[in-house]
Computed example of a mutant assay.
Amino acid sequence: MKAFLGACCIVLLLAGCSVPRAIREGGPMPGQRVDPVGKVLILGVKDGQEQGQSPAQGSGQELVDSLRKVLAEHSVPLSTTPAQALPAGFDEAVSGGWNYVLKGEITHWEDNATAWSGKGDKLFISVELYDAKTKQLVAAATEQRTATGFTFVSGTPDRFMDEVSVGALSKIYGWPIAK
């Protein structure tokens, strides 16, 4: 009987694990090359919003901070701006001597708050890198992150910010992703 109860507890613990699943796509546009040390100006990002819900306050800034962190870890010179629109970003980048403008967007935010629903939280982002002078799209990438399975603790999609930033920027810059 003790062995049976022990086995049941192990099965429940394993069933309570939430394993994230990632899908990433993108890279440089045909005929384009990304300079790995080109100076990047990161635009502000609008907060993510689940359909029918209020915006997830601060999630846009979290994405900016995460993109900044990943680029800094790879020694990419960078700065941020609160401007979210490309025209304002281009103007600021050119006047500041930046090579690129990086536009990030939270394309899907789904906070399945209940730990027992069986539905995983979802965070999808897109990242576009533009040449500041020509305003031409140089590279683009998306990263979709979904928690799968039941979990015993609730989380929010923002726990995936670093992973989605690493995934998307790795597609743009060609960096290997540590497993």
Rank of each mutant, 00 (worst) to 15 (best):
A168V: 03
E163L: 04
G60Y: 06
G6D: 14
A178L: 13
S59Q: 07
P157L: 07
D121R: 09
L43T: 10
K133P: 01
D111G: 04
V11L: 15
E105I: 10
K2P: 05
V40A: 08
A56W: 06
L5S: 13
G48D: 13
L13H: 01
K39Q: 12
N112H: 15
C17R: 12
G120Y: 06
G44L: 11
E128Q: 15
P157A: 09
E50K: 14
L5M: 09
G174F: 00
T107R: 04
A7T: 10
P157G: 10
G26F: 00
T156H: 12
L129S: 00
V138S: 03
G44Q: 08
T148R: 13
E25W: 07
V19L: 14
R145E: 10
G44V: 02
K69T: 13
P20Y: 02
A113T: 11
E92T: 15
K2A: 15
E50T: 11
D47A: 04
K103H: 08
G60W: 04
W109M: 07
P157F: 07
C17D: 04
D35I: 02
G96S: 14
G96H: 10
S126G: 14
D111K: 12
Q144L: 01
D65N: 15
S79D: 13
N99W: 05
S59Y: 10
P176S: 08
T81C: 01
V64R: 03
